[in-house]
Computed example of a mutant assay.
Amino acid sequence: MEGLKKTPLFELHNKLGAKIVEFGGWAMPVQYSSILEEHRAVRERVGIFDVSHMGEISVRGRDAFDFLQYILTNNMGKLEPGKIVYSLMLYENGGTVDDFLVYQIGENDYLLVVNASNTEKDFNWIREHAHGFEVEVNNISSMYGEVAVQGPMAEVTLQKLTDFELGSIPYYEFRHNVMLLGIEVLISRTGYTGEDGFEVYMAPDKAGKLWEEIMEAGKEYGILPCGLGTRDTLRFEARMPLYGHELDENTTPLEAGLSFAVSFDKDFIGKDALLREKEDGLKKKLVGFEMVDKGIPRKDYEVYKDGAKIGYVTTGTHSPTLDKNIGLAYVKPDYAKIGEEFDIMIRGKANRAVVVKTPFYKRQA
């Protein structure tokens, strides 16, 4: 793990016996016990993740709102202090620079929480396009440690550590200056698992103490530390995109089924390309599929129909929740209808699959 960046919780992961892997330039835990056990803990009880590798970029100044309107696809007018919106940032050709969450901290003060592997790229892209706007852009990632507490028992677990009424935070909102056992945090009700849960941001030197306090508070509910392996199976069942899989510089939000995060009633970088795409029709479309044959699909496996290649798999695995082999794939739009059958090439052999409705998993409200 030499040369890799390490989160404030790295030594703690080693102590817990986590299997460490490289992810986006970081040394991160991929699993502690087993991906299956950790997955079930989050779906049924509560799990805690180290997400300190995520990037944080501050955009402040008189023109902050106008600037974000220009570089992001979603409408920043949906925001007010304490609210969060999901958005994408595009190249002129409509391809995706990144997808992330935007937190409005105050008037003309925004926090962008971006993908770890894209932090530097995003920061440079934002700075390059800030000319002509009165804004200050800073990469403040080193100022934060971050943990995600996810699952049906996430709220009761964290509530033990604070007098602040966590039930008062609606989904996709946050509060700052909340005290968890004397530690000041920013806490948001978001997540990447398909479950209820919270992301907790704190000073890096407080991360270890907070992790241990949350583990203690969640003990009676069967809390487990969870790694990147589980984070991936959970987000995938909930059909949440992962940059480098469902999104990249050659993929538009319309192809990825993310048009809800695109506001065409304003100007933004990449808008013209998306309008042309709407007019000309999509070249590919993201679909969910279930294997009819026994094979497990994996990223980059080719998709065929009647002997002709029609697409490729972006993510595939055995779903712990559904106990089925499922995947996401980009295919030509003609083959994207529910019930459509095609073949996934697994080790040179055609394995039948059928297009199904997504998300594969949706929690009961």
Score class of each variant (00 low, 15 high):
residue 3 G to K: 09
residue 10 F to S: 09
residue 10 F to H: 15
residue 14 N to W: 01
residue 20 I to W: 02
residue 22 E to R: 04
residue 31 Q to A: 00
residue 32 Y to N: 00
residue 36 L to I: 01
residue 39 H to A: 00
residue 40 R to W: 08
residue 46 V to D: 00
residue 49 F to Y: 11
residue 58 S to H: 13
residue 59 V to M: 06
residue 65 F to D: 10
residue 78 K to D: 09
residue 80 E to R: 14
residue 84 I to P: 03
residue 87 S to W: 02
residue 88 L to C: 14
residue 94 G to W: 09
residue 94 G to R: 05
residue 95 G to F: 02
residue 96 T to R: 01
residue 97 V to N: 08
residue 102 V to R: 02
residue 106 G to W: 05
residue 113 V to S: 13
residue 117 S to V: 12
residue 121 K to Y: 15
residue 121 K to H: 14
residue 125 W to V: 03
residue 129 H to A: 05
residue 134 E to K: 10
residue 134 E to N: 13
residue 135 V to M: 06
residue 136 E to C: 05
residue 138 N to M: 10
residue 144 Y to H: 15
residue 152 P to Y: 11
residue 154 A to R: 11
residue 155 E to G: 12
residue 157 T to L: 13
residue 160 K to I: 06
residue 165 E to Q: 14
residue 169 I to E: 07
residue 171 Y to A: 14
residue 174 F to C: 11
residue 177 N to Q: 13
residue 183 I to P: 10
residue 183 I to Q: 09
residue 193 T to S: 15
residue 194 G to A: 06
residue 196 D to H: 02
residue 196 D to N: 07
residue 202 M to T: 15
residue 215 M to Y: 07
residue 219 K to I: 03
residue 219 K to V: 04
residue 226 C to Q: 01
residue 227 G to A: 05
residue 228 L to M: 08
residue 230 T to V: 10
residue 235 R to K: 11
residue 236 F to M: 14
residue 242 L to F: 12
residue 244 G to D: 08
residue 259 S to F: 04
residue 260 F to G: 01
residue 261 A to S: 15
residue 272 D to Y: 07
residue 276 R to V: 06
residue 281 G to L: 11
residue 285 K to G: 04
residue 288 G to V: 09
residue 289 F to C: 09
residue 294 K to W: 05
residue 302 E to K: 15
residue 312 Y to V: 02
residue 315 T to L: 01
residue 323 D to M: 07
residue 327 G to M: 02
residue 329 A to T: 04
residue 334 D to R: 15
residue 348 G to H: 11
residue 356 V to K: 14
residue 358 T to V: 14
residue 365 A to Y: 03
